[in-house]
Design a protein around this nucleic acid. Structure first.
Lengths: 274, 274
DNA sequence: TAGCAACTTGAATCTACCG
DNA sequence: CCGGTAGATTCAAGTTGCT
């Protein structure tokens, strides 16, 4: 009997992966973990000084369950503390590398609608890190699946549209996006670069972390094929899971909070994915 | 007698600063140092494993000559070695912080026309780090001097134009950019964010890693006033010096290579700056 | 149906103020 | 002095609703 198309697991990914997954079962991990701060009101924050160790233990499990040719995509950003930008992410990346991860690339996610505000000593923060780790130099990559219309001065807009439309187009949900697709069909298509443009999600998802579906969709298309398994060990509102199902990949989402399991299941039903 | 408006010094910035500059004489340092690699054909490369120590000794001098309210802007990017992105820059940032530098912010420079190319396991590299260090939380910042037109579909283009035009507009050199300035005059101006868009310089500057004049110009306007002193300890083709002079700041450029001293002086003459 | 305007909101950060 | 909270500031994208 074949594996289920999706699984939503409630618990700490450290123990869930250890007990429920064998080695090499996952083809792609895409996640945006809780950041190191103390915003306990929305999500159990981990203090910066404890963050690296906390994360490394879980990353060891990611490594174990990841396929030899698989990819681990980590979206994260340092917060400002006492006027300084934190450096724990830099420490984390080096530690991951020392533990055996192959540090292939750092992508930049430019958030075109970053949070507004004005301060005497800094401008608005409009970007986040996206680190790409592998198990070796030889990993699966399907570059043709993420081509974008050739750049002009509307490049950013088109890039976003292309990601959105392709997801919807390939999904089971018909949303009347055919016309927009036509806008860039027939245009010359080129490979993107390592700077991605996506707006954050403003609508109320029931989760504080607005993670646009285009973002996981981009990496799912780039690093997996239909039927492959995609894991988000810090699922949150379930955006990665939804994107994976729309693209006909198997999806596994893990979260410590029961409410996110419930809301994600509702979301998948609403979108007609399950 | 007042200080000269500009100085071009041939030598290692370590010794030049130590012997020729007193504490706190510089208001802004903007530099793009030689990267850690072995491209000895154009610039004396420093091996990755020696790079951090090599840089830290020079950074100590930067700290000494920098004004209490001054800023140090460091543009740098890791190279790919054996398929992996290097981590020595992350180590450098942490070490600088441990030496007393206040790590205020990391900006992203998106190179809109990055070098084309295709590799089986990565896309084009289209961005570089720009680290902002200070001596404390209290530093000079003149945010109104770098406002940009409010965003619309042409946001990125306008942002780039604004930076270019303002530099030219305030310079001694009239270049017929008045019409472009008019394009965004009367529009609502907003503060930029920490992602900058500048096209790379393709013209032959005689230097391997020329950054666009808009880049130092942006930070010179943001962190200094007319008459302040701007230093580039790894001058190269002299872009920072040229931008500083156009904006009526004092400029100091240091380089180990005699040929760059010569070519920069010629450049400044050609541009009518000296 | 297209186009425009008003309205809403989002992993922000700083200063001020309290206990 | 440290830690926590409330208020002010500000921009882009999406949504709604009207002509």
């Amino acid at each position: 009997m074949s594996k289920p198309i999706y699984e939503l697991m409630c618990g700490d990914c450290l123990s869930e992966l250890r007990s429920e997954f064998g080695a090499g079962e996952v083809d792609l991990i895409v996640t945006s973990p809780p950041y190191a701060d103390n915003r306990k009101s929305t999500y159990p924050g981990i203090k910066p000084e404890e963050y690296v160790e906390w994360f490394l233990h879980r990353a060891d499990q990611f490594y174990r369950v990841l396929n030899k040719r698989g990819t681990f995509i980590l979206n994260i950003k340092e917060r400002v503390q006492h006027g300084e930008r934190g450096t724990y992410v830099m420490e984390l990346v080096q530690r991951l590398r020392n533990r055996g991860w192959f540090f292939t690339e750092e992508w930049i996610w430019h958030k075109t609608n970053s949070f507004p505000g004005k301060w005497p000593n800094r401008f608005r923060d409009a970007w986040e890190h996206i680190y790409q780790f592998n198990k070796s130099k030889d990993f699966s990559m399907f570059q043709d699946s993420v081509k974008v219309p050739i750049g002009d001065w509307a490049k950013t807009r088109m890039k976003k549209l292309s990601a959105t439309d392709r997801v919807r187009d390939e999904s089971k949900v018909e949303s009347g996006f055919g016309k927009r697709v036509a806008n860039w069909e027939g245009r010359k298509m080129v490979y993107p670069d390592n700077v991605l443009y996506f707006a954050t999600v403003c609508e109320n998802t029931g989760h504080s972390a607005a993670f646009p579906e285009e973002l996981p969709a981009f990496f799912i298309k780039l690093f997996t094929r239909k039927g492959d398994t995609v894991l988000d060990p810090f699922m949150g509102s379930g955006t990665t899971v939804a994107a994976a199902l729309k693209l006909e990949r198997r999806a596994v989402g893990i979260d410590t909070e029961r409410k996110y399991i419930t809301s994600t299941r509702n979301r998948l039903k609403t979108e007609g994915l399950i």
